[in-house]
């Protein structure tokens, strides 16, 4: 296993992913630094979501390994990977539509605590004051205090995404993976989300963002990796990537002008 630098939180090492004849990921080598926002961009079908699925244990790579905090996580189950500090926001909001907003945010906190299994039905949810207060705090963070008791299924799409973010934040993950956090949002909602993510970044949480929206990427990212046809074709700070001729040819050229 390639050794990672000491401030690397996530190291994707020489990962290949083949689906039959399709080489979805080819020789991906990525290092995500502690406390940074790392954006992964690329045209449709570049392999961004596949890469994310490899990182959270949904897919096992054909070869290579993913190392989180010095621990190889390839082969581990999604719930085990979450337990050691990786949280994920999905492209289409994955929430508990039958539960209220409050319960939606409390459930991940309980899951984090009791994930392995605990049969604690001598207590009730209402007695767990700290978790309730913390949930209230994170709901306030994403600006949804007015919706505490609303059933999550009846929220707007933008609210569902914000709710999912709060569900991840209450777990205090070391690494947060966001799959197109602003897709389908209005410009106003997008800007609110950007502000929110900046606020979280100030707390030192490492984030990987997969994104289409260049406005979001360039206003947030510290580092950008450009993925095309399963390969990383460029990597660096936003300025470098913006001026990279390869990138312009493959992606930005068509998208921006």
């Amino acid at each position: 296993m390639a050794t990672a630098k000491h401030n690397t939180v996530l190291h994707v090492a020489d990962v290949h992913m083949r689906f039959g004849g399709l080489h979805a990921l080819a020789d991906i080598d990525l290092e995500i630094e502690e406390g940074k926002i790392h954006a992964i961009i690329g045209p449709n079908g570049a392999g961004k979501s596949t890469l994310l699925n490899v990182c959270v244990g949904r897919l096992a790579p054909t070869s290579g390994a993913v190392v989180f905090d010095g621990q190889v996580i390839t082969g581990m189950k999604p719930h085990e990977i979450n337990q050691i500090g990786v949280a994920r926001v999905f492209q289409t909001p994955e929430i508990f539509s039958d539960l209220s907003v409050m319960e939606n945010v409390m459930a991940p906190a309980f899951a984090k605590r009791d994930g392995a299994f605990r049969l604690n039905f001598m207590k009730n949810v209402g007695q767990e004051k700290e978790i309730r207060q913390e949930a209230e705090h994170f709901i306030e963070d994403v600006g949804m205090t007015a919706e505490l008791e609303t059933p999550a299924g009846s929220l707007s799409r933008g609210d569902k995404r914000r709710l999912e973010l709060a569900m991840c934040l209450i777990q205090h993950p070391r690494l947060l993976l966001l799959d197109e956090p602003t897709a389908g949002m209005s410009r106003h909602d997008t800007n609110t989300t950007i502000e929110l993510l900046k606020k979280i970044k100030a707390r030192g949480m490492t984030k990987v963002i997969i994104e289409h929206d260049m406005h979001v990427v360039f206003s947030l990212a510290d580092k950008i990796s450009v993925l095309a046809q399963g390969r990383i074709i460029a990597e660096g700070d936003p300025e470098t990537v913006r001026n990279d001729p390869e990138v312009k040819k493959a992606y930005l050229g068509g998208a921006q002008e």
């Binding site: 959270v56 719930h79 337990q83 508990f96 319960e103 605590r113 949810v125």
Partner: peptide, 25 residues
């Protein structure tokens, strides 16, 4: 009304999410 029951309701509502939320379902 227990946390255990809440985990069960979460599994019913969205088992996939429960897994990515760190729960061994």
């Amino acid at each position: 009304i227990s946390p255990f029951g809440m985990m069960l309701k979460g599994i019913k509502s969205n088992q996939n999410r429960m897994g990515y939320t760190g729960l061994n379902t």
